[in-house]
Write a protein that binds this DNA or RNA. Structure first.
Length: 579
RNA sequence: GCGCCAGUAGCUCAGUAUGGAUAGAGCAGCGGCCUUCUAAGCCGCUGGUCGCAGGUUCGAUUCCUGCCUGGCGCACCA
């Protein structure tokens, strides 16, 4: 449930109470909408309630609006001025300066900046999930960045988030890698770059297997040995995981991404056969040719029946079985209210199936699939097998390099901070924001220039805004001026607009989290920066003659700064004090 | 064959869950603004039959139906 910001909520309640007096007792009041007025209107908020009532009351909307506005006037008290009626019957509200001052004071005093606090319920977020023995490439960034942003937002909203990295550390590929290890390994290359070499021989296996189908059988044999507990294969497998996790961790450290647990697919191995047996006993499975067991789904297409194999004919479980076992494990371990899966949209149907199976088996956890579109290159799809994906660390290096070059041009001579750290913050911020500012559902065509742009709607623009607020507040402090968190003097429409926008921080984070759309928060932050800059250009602070106005403007600056810094942090992006 | 996602300005995208007033940004283009709190900035201009056709509604980019185009899925891979 998304709760509106305080002023909207207050107006909604007043409009609803008034409407209920106007309609017949047997009629139901329509949903009362109260929205921010669009630019160009003198009101702050507007409601189309009178239009919605026209049918119920069988009167003209303008007439109803006039009546409703008149009845509302005494009830608004000190909250707003007398409402106006415009257009076909929209009622506009303009908050009183006193009411706005109250909201400024409340937000300035609130440690949580208007973020409503849940009661510490557990929420599991499953994201990143790279495959062992492969380098992370640009295709992995979306799940990692979106999942991390959701984890940060969930914590800020008062949930106990369990960030779980469900790494791909089991399955068919390991038979292939072990076969490749025995035939093509370059030990020297493995010593210097273990994961790079594992990936190289894995790709070689894919290429060779296309020519010689018998390789697949050989790989299956190695996999069977591994699954049966063969000591050598088991040792190799553990070695691959250790090497890969070491490399993953370096990337996560750099990105500032932290997991609470890394329960890979193999973590669930012991739970799979008992689960299949249980499902079989409960009559949930059908046998298909060769002895495999599967769950069948309704609305069967004649040509291609939809089913989910949970036990192969050789007795082994599948990734689907693992996903089922994972749900049960998490429910038993944490009893979470919600579990969020951050994966690409190709897995949508798979998760629908998994969710429907476990719900039948009395799982009550709210299961949510946050899916995102596919990243491709201008030439086509990205994949490790095809070897055309840009490694993640190369992308991050290039981002930092470009940010560093930009800093060399722009930083003043007296800058005495750590330029490398600043370049890293700006470069990585740009990469993360370019992803987070898109609706996750849309597909992305990779572009260096787009991902590493520093102007317009980008992280560096937001970071720059934050740096300006720091600079201004520092100069004010040097002149003996400090924000007091209470003074508000509105001399320009732009400051009113800025404050009204800042009042939406809490509801915006709530909506972004609930909908699994960090871009909602990114977009709100961009509006903060944009409105702040317009205001900044029009409303002098230190150069103002009026001390009350100076303090008021410092209050707006301070509040905007706190929300920018906090909001960027929720996206996993740092905010420098100077840039 | 069945299903999912998308189609909004020259380009890249928001907005659509809960239908509301003239559909918003960025980039690109044109014109202004740094002796004045950081020009990664600000201000202005140019640019749209919201894929097409119907329907519901006082009102549709948003909801419904059909169609067109693009992407993806429907493995004893994960």
């Amino acid at each position: 449930m998304t709760s509106p910001q305080p002023a909207t909520a207050a107006l909604q309640a007043l409009v609803l109470a008034t409407i209920e007096e106007m309609i017949p007792s047997d009629a139901t009041a329509p949903n009362v909408q109260v929205d921010r007025s669009k630019a160009g209107f003198s009101s702050d908020f507007q409601t189309p309630a009178a239009l919605q009532l026209a049918k119920v009351l069988r009167r003209s909307p303008r007439d109803i609006a006039a009546d409703l506005a008149a009845k509302l006037t005494p009830r608004l008290g000190a909250l707003a001025e007398a409402p106006d009626v415009s257009g076909p019957g929209f009622i506009g509200f303009r908050l009183s300066d006193d009411a706005l001052q109250g909201y400024l004071e409340a937000l300035s005093a609130a440690e949580h900046l208007g973020l409503e606090q849940a009661g510490g319920e557990h929420i599991v977020i499953d994201y990143s999930s790279p495959n062992v023995a492969k380098r992370m490439h640009v295709g992995h960034i979306r799940s990692t960045i979106i999942g991390d942003a959701l984890a940060r937002m969930g914590r800020a909203l008062g949930y106990r988030v369990i960030a779980d990295n469900h790494i791909g550390d089991w399955g068919t590929q390991f038979g292939q890698i072990i076969y490749a290890w025995d035939h093509w390994l370059d030990p020297a290359a493995y010593d210097s770059d273990p994961v790079g070499e594992l990936q190289r021989i894995y790709i070689k296996f894919q290429t060779e297997a296309k020519e010689d189908a018998s390789l697949m059988d050989a790989a299956r044999a190695e996999l069977a040995k591994l699954q049966a507990g063969d000591e050598r294969n088991l040792a190799l497998w553990k070695q691959f995981i250790a090497a890969s996790r070491h490399v993953f961790d370096a990337v996560y450290d750099r990105l500032g991404v932290v997991f609470d647990v890394t329960n890979g697919e193999s973590h669930y191995n012991d739970m799979l056969i008992p689960l299949v047996d249980k499902m079989h006993d409960e009559g949930r499975l059908i046998a298909i040719d060769g002895g495999a067991l599967a769950v069948a789904f309704g609305d069967q297409d004649i040509e291609r029946p939809k089913r989910m194999v949970v036990r192969k004919s050789d007795g082994a479980a599948t990734y689907a079985t693992t996903d089922l076992a994972t749900v049960f494990y998490r429910e038993q371990t944490w009893a979470p209210m919600r579990c969020i899966y951050v994966t690409d949209s190709r897995q949508k149907e798979h998760f629908q199936h998994v969710f429907s199976v476990v719900r039948d088996m009395d799982v009550t956890t709210d299961l949510q699939h946050v899916m995102f579109g596919i990243m491709s290159s201008p030439e086509g799809s990205l994949s490790t097998r095809a070897g055309n994906a840009i490694p993640l660390d190369e992308l991050l290096d290039e981002a930092t390099r470009r940010a560093r070059a930009s800093l060399e041009e722009r930083l003043p001579a007296d800058f005495d901070g750590d330029k490398d750290a600043l370049a890293e913050m700006i470069g990585l911020g740009a990469v993360k924001y370019s992803d987070l500012s898109n609706n996750p559902a849309s597909n992305i065509v990779f572009s260096w220039d787009k991902m590493l742009s520093f102007e317009g709607n980008t992280a560096p623009y937001l970071q720059y805004t934050s740096a300006r607020t720091h600079s201004l507040l520092a100069k004010a402090a040097a002149a003996g001026l400090e924000p007091d968190g209470t003074t508000l003097k509105l001399a320009d429409p732009l400051e009113r607009d800025l404050l009204l926008h800042l009042m939406d921080f809490g509801p915006t984070v709530r909506a972004a989290f609930d909908q699994g759309k960090p871009n909602t928060l990114a977009s709100w932050l961009y509006d903060v920066a944009s409105k702040y800059h317009s205001w900044y250009a029009a409303c002098p602070v230190l150069r103002s003659e009026d001390r009350e106005l100076q303090i008021s403007r410092l209050n707006l600056t301070r509040l905007a700064q706190r929300m920018l810094v906090r909001g960027l942090d929720l996206l996993g992006i740092g905010a420098p004090q100077r840039m």
